[in-house]
Design a binder for these strands. Sequence first.
DNA 1: CACACCATGTAAGCGGTTACATGATTCC
DNA 2: GGAATCATGTAACCGCTTACATGGTGTG
Lengths: 181, 181
Amino acid sequence: MAQKNKLQFIILGLLDQQPLTGYDLTKAFDHEIGEFWQAQHSQIYPQLKRLEEQGYITHEITISGEKLEKKLYHTTPTGQAVLTTWITAGTPELTATKDEFILKLYFVRTNRDPRLPEMLLEQLQLHVDKSEHLQARLATVFPTKKSQAENFGHYLILQHAIGRENYYVTWLKQTLAALPK
Amino acid sequence: MAQKNKLQFIILGLLDQQPLTGYDLTKAFDHEIGEFWQAQHSQIYPQLKRLEEQGYITHEITISGEKLEKKLYHTTPTGQAVLTTWITAGTPELTATKDEFILKLYFVRTNRDPRLPEMLLEQLQLHVDKSEHLQARLATVFPTKKSQAENFGHYLILQHAIGRENYYVTWLKQTLAALPK
DNA sequence: CACACCATGTAAGCGGTTACATGATTCC
DNA sequence: GGAATCATGTAACCGCTTACATGGTGTG
């Protein structure tokens, strides 16, 4: 195996919260959990088929409008058990990250390279933008303490993503400041 | 293309610093730059072949001992130009990260779930260990200011990785502390 | 009625991991 | 002489992205 198919568990987790279509799932990967996992619909539909064959999920067909068929998937008891097992099992392997930009810096070799300031400033802009965007989302989606507690998981994810971006921003500023003039 | 083959540039960058064998490159991905990019030898050897066919690198054969042939690769002027182009071009796409653990938290749904403390504590241990391990390496590899300036890229990478782990640790502690008793 | 969006699928191809395979060297 | 390490390669397979393909719905 190339990487142990974690997508199946994530789909299972999403469907366990509420019945969803493949299209809904695709959107969830774009918005809600997109900061920590990505998947396209071309990966999702075949996976749904496999999960159903294994008996972890089932679907009901609903009709939208005249004749548009939507497949609403939800977990079965078996699927819920599999999900619980995945969550409860430890997560001992820290995800290996790949960061193209950091490697470019690595190859620059000297802190006097004239390209450094603009390279760092570009990343700074990108990460500041992302952080601000995420913070705006946090403010609109979770305006109250109550809303934070009610969607605990989503709140955690967003807040972690913001912190991660803020660390990157801090590091970039610090690196910029340490550059010789 | 599935992801635009960045490996070729990284190999180019490593070979531009000093001539290396495929075996040396493999080790570099384990140690030096392993925090920000990973690759196995089964991926490296074919890539070296392709880079040579394109005229970006060449190799000389050296004999170790009686008859063990080592292929020492180094960049050509063409390869150096390609490398410079890659570094100088912008890096506008922020790398999308995948974090299995954060998603498990997301699916937990309520901050009263009894599994939360042990889940968070396991990750805390893992990230503390990693941070300490990286800090020990920083201290041994870069004991002096001079050594930091001389290996600017390597120093940056290590230091960034440590900061990243420290953020994760801080976040985990904070999340643990916010849990209801 | 056109356009954005909803909705579901398949196919091709690259990136990356795991496993298979072989042999030399060095050090205890 | 045995074990760890050096050294180079290939094969199978999965994960994932990009692209191909089709059709319905709702809204201005």
